[in-house]
């Protein structure tokens, strides 16, 4: 993993419909940062992520990855980041293994088994996603955090629908990732217990 990585957002202005979601939003994150993005429902937390990925165009502002503009040409950012959104991106007709294989064609069987047993879904490898509970489905999606080697994480409400044990597991993984030099952005309505993230409020 690249050890020194920095993401700078300066003067970002996003609007949705006729509403300003954020205006003059600036933020710098470097390797090892964990950033908790706060805001009420509809404050634009998801839109902020989508803006960084080029799915929403900002009115104004700049985003730089290692000093390189990534708003006009996003490939460098996309190739470095992992995004888990509200919709999990799992195919309901696939089994757990097929879903993971789709994202990680090269990861070994043993690694997948290890991660799934860590997440307590080891017995479901060949079960279709549609047969799993909401929490189990979420854990399948979160398995990507253990299998991926991408440095910048964007996690949209990663803790929802998880039990206490899984939340602690996930917080542990986030901390581990930051210690290895990654950057984690996450949104959450619940307070986190194990982590001490930088808190950034999103206001218009």
């Amino acid at each position: 993993m690249q050890s020194n990585i920095s993401l700078t957002i300066s003067d970002l202005w996003i609007e949705r419909g006729d509403r300003d979601l954020c205006k003059g939003f600036s933020l710098t994150a470097t390797s090892g940062d964990i950033i908790h993005i706060l805001g009420d429902n509809g404050a634009g937390k998801s839109s902020l992520f989508k803006t960084l990925f080029g799915l929403v165009s900002p009115v104004e502002g700049e985003v730089q990855l290692n000093g390189e503009d990534v708003l006009s040409y996003r490939d460098p950012l996309l190739k470095q980041s992992l995004y888990i959104s509200h919709a999990l991106g799992l195919k309901s007709v696939f089994t757990v293994l097929e879903n993971i294989r789709w994202y990680f064609p090269k990861v070994s069987e043993a690694d997948i088994a290890r991660v799934l047993s860590l997440l307590k879904i080891e017995g479901y490898l060949d079960v279709p996603i549609k047969a799993l509970s909401a929490g189990q489905t979420r854990r399948v999606a979160l398995a990507r955090l253990w299998l991926s080697d991408l440095p910048v994480w964007f996690l949209d409400e990663p803790f929802s629908a998880l039990d206490m044990v899984s939340i602690q597991l996930l917080e542990g993984r986030i901390r581990e990732h930051a210690e290895q030099g990654g950057i984690v952005f996450f949104t959450s309505h619940q307070p986190v217990t194990l982590l001490s993230p930088r808190r950034v409020e999103l206001t218009a």
Partner: peptide, 12 residues
Amino acid sequence: ADGSLEQLLVSG
């Protein structure tokens, strides 16, 4: 609907 379109768009 299941969010994989979003994942395709951010996959790089």
